[in-house]
Write a protein that binds this DNA or RNA. Structure first.
Lengths: 336, 336
DNA sequence: CTGAAAGCGCTAACAA
DNA sequence: TTGTTAGCGCTTTCAG
């Protein structure tokens, strides 16, 4: 064994006076069938520990055509819903003894397809596809490559899919608002945000309209402001509505945290009592979006700068100790 | 070539009437040195496309001892700072043509070590270790296994590390508070949250005290409430302080969003004018933590349930189309 | 300019 | 109960 490289089963075999196959059997738990002597097994495990052995999974994968990798393709990490999915996925993978490979693809078709091919190159054992744009194409590639796969959030109608019950959720939310607001709300309730080309948005809008119907209100089309998921779009959309009405509506269902940010941004310019006249409901949960009307400075750490710096070290094969400090940014409040 | 399994360079070689080595050279860009005929190259690429070829990266890795995988070990995905790191890491990996493997380990020593061995088994080319508890041990393992690695957030003093400038950041934050509050604040400013066993917390506390010193205030020890990073701990810690003072302090620096949640939770029981008497500052940024004092219901999608369901499909090797809907949870506001 | 052949570390028949 | 051996798909000398 070369000092620089990892020990192999052959190294162990020689040191433990056994054969490679015995070592292999002992070390990968597949030794039920082989009925190996307890002493031999112990001896082998002992040597393995001494040598700091860990199996070369690539080699095993090549042999068995099972990589032990489970993949997940998702739009972004920095979104609390997707982040929860990643977290849960990682834990589930661990329970199964598999290694998670989570790739975010920015809702970009090409990145989705590229990443999929990449994962196939690694012979992923299974794949979870979250919120994908190119769902059909991804499905076909998986099918042809024989990769078990399942869609989450954005379903594919040619494969197993798991989604939130968007319609029922929004319906319940809308009814709760109507209930709290009472008769005063009249017909003046709006739905803000989302993209009607996307499955989830469409379903949520359906739920919104179902609730109106159920409350005996007319499902007027222009009560839906599907301006997209971005913060700025919903800011302007709400601003526009405010302009048309001359004030806030009586009720507002907001589709996603991003849109809620835009909403808050717009509200921040309004007097308290005006805000109190409107009943809000939001799709998506955020612990901070609780009671918070405090003006304060905040610190934002520079994630990308730090990563960039870190990669410089990796690229340079740096091995010497060092400590790079990145100054975080001070974000002052709108002096209000 | 077996219909069920991926095509290999041998399949291409036969179809293109060339040798495996030529195919290999053409397909992996290493054909500068080989001076291959343009027609042969084209022919090979053509066949490869027809067959839907994608290289078996495991095999290549076995041969070259370079897996193309870059690993990242981090505490959790569902935290906005870590999520930003993951996102940035993924993008940086893509630029380098590498495949990111991001493993979250819940700040658990054993999980950290396990995951590291796992990654080593996959012959990771490089590793980024974020916020690790067992930093020294991880470093030693990496060193012995010859894996280039770098620490982020929690430094290791025996390897390259990148961290935020915790002290400078908190110092600036604290001074901003003192500045805004003016003389009235007296000595009544507190630091809430964090774990003084952790590098980052210690540095932030240092920054806090440096600011006090600079402002000519005594750095009284018990102004630091290092109750940990959890929401509930900071809730109780603040509750306790409130009890002792009979009211809120004049200034409060809050160490992390989790602690800010606890703070908000406590504040929600206080009258508006009391809250207005205290000046707040928070380490970590959250867009929602802007101006928000609206009581409203919210929807929380059931991430774990969905993942569990999805894995049932994977486990069962399901391939038939289906659509499982998981009802999200309606979270009603504290009726206030 | 191209092909033959060895071998990366492991598993799984098949022998012994 | 254990050892021998033939590959998994790819890269890479070394010959042609």
């Amino acid at each position: 064994m070369n000092d620089l490289s990892k020990p192999t089963i052959y190294d162990i075999a020689t040191k433990a006076a056994a054969s490679p196959s015995t070592v292999s059997a002992v070390l990968n738990g597949s030794w039920k069938k082989r009925r190996i002597g307890a002493e031999t097994a112990d001896r082998i495990r002992q040597v393995a520990r001494e040598l700091g052995y860990s199996a070369n999974i690539q080699a095993r994968a090549l042999r068995t055509t099972k990589s032990g990798i489970v993949g997940m393709i998702l739009p972004q990490h920095d979104n609390s819903f997707f982040a929860s999915l990643s977290q849960a996925f990682t834990e589930a993978s661990r329970e199964r003894g598999a290694m998670p490979a989570i790739i975010s693809t920015r809702r970009d078709r090409d990145q989705e397809v590229d990443s999929l091919w990449n994962l196939i190159g690694y012979s992923v054992d299974a794949l979870m596809i979250v919120g994908a744009k190119a769902h059909d194409e991804l499905h076909e590639i998986c099918r042809d490559a024989n990769v078990p796969h399942v869609f989450v959030d954005q379903p594919c109608n040619a494969a197993p899919s798991v989604v939130s019950d968007n319609a029922a959720g929004v319906e319940e939310l809308t009814l709760a608002i109507l209930d709290r607001a009472g008769a005063e709300i009249g017909e003046e309730i709006y739905f803000l945000g989302g993209d009607s080309h996307l499955y989830a948005s469409r379903k949520r809008i359906e739920g919104f309209q179902a609730a109106l119907r159920q409350a005996g209100l007319p499902a007027i089309e222009d009560r839906v402001l599907a301006c997209g998921y971005s913060r700025t779009a919903s800011f302007y959309s709400l601003q526009d509505l405010y302009g048309r009405l001359g004030r806030l509506p009586k009720g507002l269902i907001i589709n996603s945290m991003g849109c809620f940010e835009g909403t808050l941004e717009f509200l921040s310019e309004l007097p308290e009592q005006e805000i109190a006249m409107c009943h809000f409901g939001v799709w998506d949960y955020d612990p901070i979006a609780a009671l918070c009307r405090i003006s304060m400075p905040m610190i934002r750490q520079k994630a990308e700068v730090m990563i960039r710096k870190a990669f410089v070290h990796l690229d340079a094969r740096d091995t010497a100790p060092s400590l790079t400090k990145i100054k975080p940014e001070l974000i002052l409040p709108r002096t209000l």
